[in-house]
């Protein structure tokens, strides 16, 4: 009697183990692989120097294909003193600096030679040396960039073993509207089981 009872219990247990009646392990969330674009370490923009070294088409930078030499292009403003962007340059968004004060193309471009840049100190800089132009106004940032505290560097920390690649201002910033645009963040961590949805900790109200 006892033996039969035990046998029944054991058979029951064995059946339960084999059929996973506890539902263990619980089904796991299927986590999709991330988009390879997230893993890409290249910068969002390419500088004039990058285009030269990649031997790419530079016809976009041939200002005098349209403009007339020796004749500074006129700037036109609306009644609020906002610069009117000509149709040919419609892709330019004037967003450099606040309050619309920086609304003169020739604060940076050289009006007498459009293929060069001109900082306020009167120097004439080639397009590929734009970082010096930025530095002529943004002194502390230029100092930080020069010492490596600001900006991106790729390649080798140990320059004896390989080259360190230091990125220029315009590799990351659009000179016409340099503020970083917001972006969608890469996917956050997933839960192991369940729906894969994560519960958020309540956001504290901003104190700023």
């Amino acid at each position: 009697m006892v033996l039969t009872g035990l046998a029944v219990v054991f058979i029951g247990l064995a059946a339960a183990f084999l059929s996973d009646s506890w539902g263990y392990p619980a089904p796991r969330v299927k986590i999709p692989l991330v988009d390879k674009a997230i893993l890409d370490p290249t910068t969002v923009r390419r500088t004039y120097a990058d285009l030269i070294s990649a031997k790419e088409d530079l016809s976009d930078f041939d200002c005098y294909a349209c403009h007339e030499k020796g004749q500074p292009p006129p700037l036109r403003y609306d009644e609020n003193h906002k610069l009117l962007i000509p149709e040919e340059h419609v892709n330019i968004v004037m967003g450099h600096g606040s309050h619309g004060r920086n609304n003169n193309c020739f604060n940076c471009h050289n009006e007498t030679n459009l293929t060069t840049l001109q900082p306020r100190d009167g120097r004439e800089l080639k397009l590929e040396n734009s970082t010096e132009l930025c530095g002529s106004c943004h002194g502390p940032t230029y100092r930080d960039w020069d010492s490596g505290a600001h900006g991106r560097s790729n390649g080798y920390w140990n320059t004896k073993l390989g080259p360190a690649v230091k990125k220029d201002c315009v590799n990351c910033h659009n000179p016409h509207s340099p503020r970083f645009p917001g972006r969608k963040p890469a996917p956050g961590p997933h839960t192991l089981h369940g729906t894969g949805e994560v519960t958020h900790t309540p956001e504290s109200p901003s104190t700023h």
């Binding site: 969608k184 963040p185 519960t199 958020h200 504290s204 901003s206 104190t207 700023h208």
Partner: peptide
């Protein structure tokens, strides 16, 4: 993390914002 604190308890690592950075964090 919300501005104005370094209390790690207030940090959220599961944020799924449409856009970062968010104002106030």
């Amino acid at each position: 993390m919300p501005h104005g604190t370094f209390d790690l308890e207030k940090g959220d690592h599961n944020y799924a914002s449409e856009q970062v950075p968010e104002k106030g964090f």
